[in-house]
Structures are given as structure tokens and as C-alpha cells.
Design a binder for these strands. Structure first.
Lengths: 263, 263
DNA sequence: CTGCCTGTTTCGCATTGTGAAACGCAGGCA
DNA sequence: TGCCTGCGTTTCACAATGCGAAACAGGCAG
């Protein structure tokens, strides 16, 4: 009787394992029992039992023509109870517009969607052609883009671990940095201490740069807010000094307007 | 020592319960322990233990300012391993175009997303103004629209139950029919036996109508394919006789092109 | 202060989940 | 053809694991 693993207060073992299985299934899009056994380390009979449960609930299917098991679309349905989202976007819209009015740069608000940040609203100043990929719906890498890194830096550790694990299996070139966790974690630590994110130095083009800050609901990141500026128009240090405080206060305002106990 | 509930082969109790909890949390966007106790019937200490586990894994948060617990955005990440989706849409695109070429009516392919069918591709014949809400991204009610009903009718029962449970909590007027399960289930049974779906008779406007068929991957629905016609241009019976066979064969072709063990 | 209601902790019990081992089956190889 | 290897499945005896009644704690209202 080991005194339980160091940090396992009183959780339910089988549930933890079932969730691990789901995660594993999610990374490998389709997996056999053997593969699951190898990646999770769980004994095969246990895996079978857990899978049976997940299948009975409809979250996993014994995918066609005996290829193996995989996550079903029903798992998607599980996320529709996550709210805050509409509220955040609504409030974010107003403050993004405000930032753009004041500084004449594009601003955007993005939320986590599956394994990337999705832009839910973005502004483009009347000015020239936009350096900002301003399309709503655009998916930004969690590891390389400012809006993604701000999220990763400020989300709870358990979540970060899971996301990184998923991303390291991704083929997306932009997410490749997730495979060098040490460097990435150091970068995230820096972001955390300075309070805002910039894109991964490796990403092109460098003619523009985005500053990203987290939008918190209580102690939880629910979105990230960003402001993009031309690097030719302004030096980095100057931009940071000038814009970051305003970004922070905008993010705070958004937080305030979505807090449930208003007043 | 009850001989276990009638149909529980060998599943893991705690996992089942944990998933029930997630579902409950998903319906009520935010819930206290008491509420969860009332809706799920689980004893409070059990709920606490399960919640602790879910929280440790990051799927649930003790939402801010002590309002209660709720599902986090991380649950969204869990669905990104569900594939088939890109393949289906790709293949669906080709066959939707084909249908439109032949019959000069709009066609569409949709997949489940959270609690509605989302149109992933749709065609609009050059002809007049389209009766079809052809926007990609449009979300169609699972209970009232043809593309939704086709999905509900052919998905596994466990999944149907969960979806209906979620929908009956929805405020969307179109989903209200989910609150009369008896009538709805009868309608779904009919859809199942005839092999295609039509919209809920109550939905306006009636100037056009869509025929929807399921796209299967093995024994699992992965999408639905629809063809919309003007009711003024063609009688229902005639349209059914003429179009349904072609819809079916298009759906079969899509199925074939996504089956993993090609030849 | 008192009563009520909700969340948390405790703790002995047996139900529940566990996993080594044995089995069955299919496909590969000689 | 028969042997073998590798994967999925089933079995079963054991005890660890999860269970939940009951007791406890804290907040809020009257």
C-alpha cells in the first residue's frame, strides 16, 4: 500500500484512467487495444472494461471494419455547456473596437477551440491593407502565436499538460515547438511573469507583431485579447510600454462585465 | 446484491457516473453540488469525489465566485480527435455538387457539432434566389430540420438519448419538440423505416422542403446529406420517388470513399 | 441565538474494479 | 498442412478501491 501517488488527494482511479484513455484516443485518431496498452500503460483487461463503458455511453466507437477504437462526434456535444463564451465575445467585441479606435491598429479576441485559438471577432482599422489575418474563425497556433501563447501561459497546469500532449502529436508545422517542451515552458513562464505574450520568435513574417493578454474569469482564462502593430512603425519596447497597459485594462474590463456577481 | 441493472454487462460504475455528471453539468451550464445531487441522484460525497477527479483533469472548474461547478473549454479539445469529418466533407462536397448539377436544386452536407447539425458545404444552383439557407456554418436544429432528424434517427440509441436530454433543456424554439419525446421518437422511427427524413411539419416556411439521408461509416452516422426542392415545383410524393434513390446512392458513394479499408 | 440548508470530512464495510493467467482466433511462415 | 506468434477476449479469486450513512462545519435568515 504505497501512500498513494504523491499528489492524489482523493480522486477516483477508474475515472482518471478513463479520461486518460479518452485523451490517448484523441491523440491517435484511431487506436487498437494494443496501442492503447502501450501508450497508457494500463493492463489490457482494464482497457477493455473502460472502453466498454465509454462505448455504452456513446463517446467512443469500435470504429468500422475492425480498425480499432476512436472518439465519436458525441464528445463534441459535451462542450456546448461551456458558456462564458458568448458573453466574452460580446464584451470583447466592444473593447477590441475601442482599442482600434484609439490606436488605429487591428485588435482581436479569441477563444480556445479544440487545439487552437479561434478568432471570434477582429477589427481592421480603415488604414492600409491589414497586416492582421483578420478573418473571424481563423485558427491560431497555441504554441507560436501571441493569442495562443497567452492562453497556454495562463491556463491551469493540468490543462496545459493535456493541450501540449495533444499538440506534440500534431503535424502542424507551427505547433512543432510543442515538441521542445523545455524551451516552450520557459517561454511561457516568461509570459506569465511579464503578463503578456508575443509570438514565437521563429514565426514569419516579422513585419508585424501582436501583443496578447489573457482575459480572466475569476482565476480562469476564458479568452485572449490581442493588438497588432507594424514593427516598422514602432519599436518593440515602445509598443510594449504604450499598449500593454491598455490591453490589460481592456481585458480587466471584459472580465468585469462577465463576472456573474455583478455589482 | 442486485444482479446489477438489467443491461449492464461489465461496465465501470464510477466512470458511468462521472460521465453522467459531465452530462448534467453540461445541461445546466453551471450547477451546485445540491443541484447535481438532485438531478443525478448520486450521493453527495460521491459527487464531490468525482468532481475532484474531473477538476484535477481540467474538464470541470469550480467556477468563479463560488457560483458552482461547470464544464471548461478543455472539453472542447477532447473532440478534435474525431476525424472522418474532413474526409466526409471532402467527399460530400463532390456529391453535393453532382446532385445539384443533375437536379438543379441546392444540396448540402452537414455534420454534428455540439447540439446541432452544422452545414459544412452547400451548393446553390444558378437558378433564382435560393430557397436554401445555403451558408456554410449554418446550424440546423436536430429535431426539426431534415438534416438534423436524419442524424437523430440513425445515430445509436445511447447517443440519441443524450442529445435529446440536452436539447430538451435548450431554449431554442426550434428544439422545443424535444420536449415531446413520444411524438418525436415515433417520427424518428418512421424516418428510420423509410430511410430518409423530412423537416418537422410545424416548421415554416413550407415553400421549400429538404430530403435528408444519413451518411454512414460502417454502422455509424457521420454526416447527413440533403437536397432541397421548391414545393411549388414538384409534389412531395413525386420528389421522394425521384430524388431519394439518388440521395441514397450519393450517400453510399460517400460512405465508400471514406471507408478505411479501401479495396 | 436558533434552526435550516449546503458543502465537506470521516471511516468501517463490501462492492467494485482489478489484472495475472488462460483461452481463442486469425494471419504468417515453412 | 501444422506450428507459431500476436492480439483481443474471457475468467476468476482477491483485496484495494470506491462507497455512502452519518457526523461535522460554516453561512445565512429569521
Amino acid at each position: 500500500m504505497p501512500p498513494a501517488s504523491p499528489s492524489s488527494g482523493d480522486q477516483v482511479q477508474s475515472v482518471t484512467r478513463a479520461l486518460d484513455l479518452l485523451q490517448a484516443l484523441n491523440r491517435q485518431k484511431i487506436a487498437s487495444i494494443k496501442q492503447l496498452h502501450d501508450t497508457t500503460g494500463l493492463p489490457k483487461p482494464t482497457i477493455v472494461r473502460l472502453l466498454k463503458t465509454l462505448i455504452a455511453k456513446g463517446y467512443v466507437a469500435n470504429d468500422p471494419r475492425q480498425g480499432g477504437y476512436s472518439v465519436t462526434s458525441l464528445v463534441r456535444a459535451l462542450s456546448c455547456g461551456f458558456h462564458g463564451d458568448p458573453l466574452v465575445v460580446e464584451a470583447g467585441r466592444a473593447w477590441a473596437i475601442d482599442l482600434t479606435r484609439r490606436f488605429k491598429w487591428p485588435a482581436a479576441i479569441a477563444v480556445l477551440d479544440e487545439n487552437a485559438m479561434t478568432v471570434r471577432f477582429s477589427t481592421i482599422p480603415e488604414s492600409p491593407i491589414s497586416p492582421f489575418h483578420g478573418t473571424v474563425g481563423l485558427r491560431l497556433s497555441l504554441v507560436s502565436r501571441s493569442l495562443g501563447r497567452a492562453y497556454l501561459a495562463f491556463c491551469p497546469q493540468a490543462e496545459r499538460n493535456i493541450l501540449l500532449q495533444m499538440l506534440s502529436a500534431s503535424k502542424d508545422r507551427e505547433d512543432a515547438a510543442a515538441r521542445r517542451p523545455a524551451a516552450l515552458l520557459r517561454a511561457l513562464q516568461a509570459i506569465r511573469s511579464q503578463g503578456f505574450a508575443e509570438r514565437d520568435p521563429g514565426v514569419e513574417p516579422k513585419s508585424s507583431s501582436t501583443l496578447g493578454v489573457p482575459v480572466m474569469d475569476g482565476d480562469r482564462v476564458v479568452a485572449t485579447l490581442g493588438l497588432t502593430y507594424f514593427t516598422s512603425a514602432m519599436k518593440r519596447a515602445q509598443a510594449v510600454d504604450l499598449y500593454v497597459p491598455h490591453l490589460r485594462s481592456a481585458a480587466d474590463n471584459i472580465s468585469r462585465s462577465i463576472s456573474r456577481l455583478g455589482s
